[in-house]
Amino acid sequence: MHEALVVGGTRFIGRYAVEELLEHDYRVTIFNRGEHENPFADRDGVHHYEGDRTNDRELLTAKREVEPDVVIDCVAYHPRDVRKATEIFADVGAYVYVSSGASYAVDEIPKREGETPLRSCSADQAADDSGATYGNRKAEGDRAVFRAAERGVNAMAVRPTVVYGPHDYTERLDYWLHRVAEYDRVVVPGDGTNLWQRVYVEDVASALRLVAEEGTPGEAYNVGDRNALTLADTVRAAADALDTDVELVHASDRELSTVGLELGSFPLYRPAPHLLDTHALAGLGWESTPVAEAMARTAADHRESDRTGIECGPDRAAEETVLDVLDTI
């Protein structure tokens, strides 16, 4: 039985990575600070090693204690994290860095590994913690993986686009699930055709395992739903999963401005299309879950949770004002 070390492992992507590894006969150790509830506290085959991944000594001690064959790094948010991890885990069977589709610098359709340019990253950006530099930092992490592979480290990167599914603490999709569950009419920004590809969390987890087992050192692998939905189709899929009918009412920037909103005020809206080519990952045998099936699981979890996503987008009062404005046009 192989040993896996998951850096992170209790919240979202890491949680599903642990499940995926367990299902494929790995023993798993979670390495984190223990600040979030551990869903595997009573699970056989899962151990918890408490420590701070930014503390090199603690990370090295965990490596020596676990002696992992595979490392899945879910919480490397700064380039230094990746550089140090690829040094500490230089002799493991596989080190997989969870990067992001935000690493890409230009809006090509689709974005392809090794072809579409990556974002640059200055020293100031590398040390920053804001969302504005997230893509820059992830791209520099990718470059750290590439350099490590040149030194002989079996290091690879996986670039998910926007991840959704049960236990999604960002609540971006919960906003739309809550809207269609509670109301007959919802405002959708623009004409609803904007495309921001998403990926089901279980599919990210299977990608991480497959890349660890079959991937090529120094390569990055995009991961995204093979059937990419527009925002309008996403809202319709959410309604179908909740077995409810909803009217989508489209609003332009001008109409939204009457209540101080704009197109970007709504979660999962992106002005330029974002689509990742996933052929490299498919070449390893990866497949994505059909969107209807993934949405059904996500909606079922939403029903059981207290997540509403109300902090992710406009409140209902503003939305109803926009609906009133549109009804008078």
Rank of each mutant, 00 (worst) to 15 (best):
M1Q: 09
H24G: 10
R33V: 04
E35M: 13
H36F: 15
E37D: 15
P39Y: 06
H48K: 07
R57L: 13
A62C: 12
D69I: 00
K84W: 12
A85F: 03
F89H: 03
V96R: 01
S99I: 04
S100H: 02
S103W: 02
Y104H: 09
Y104C: 06
V106I: 06
G114I: 09
R119Q: 14
S120V: 11
A123F: 12
D124T: 12
D129P: 10
F146A: 13
N154M: 06
A157M: 03
Y164M: 03
G165H: 01
H167N: 12
H178S: 14
A181H: 11
D184A: 14
D184S: 15
V188L: 09
D191I: 00
T193F: 07
Q197E: 07
Y200M: 10
L208M: 14
E213M: 03
E214S: 15
T216N: 12
T216G: 08
Y221M: 03
N222H: 08
N227T: 14
A232T: 11
A239C: 09
A241R: 02
A241D: 02
A241L: 04
D243N: 12
T244P: 03
A251Y: 04
D253C: 01
S257C: 08
T258H: 13
L263D: 07
G264D: 15
S265C: 06
F266V: 08
Y269G: 08
R270Y: 12
T278R: 00
A280P: 02
A280R: 12
A282F: 04
L284I: 06
T298P: 01
H302C: 09
S305K: 01
T308I: 01
C312D: 11
C312M: 15
D315L: 06
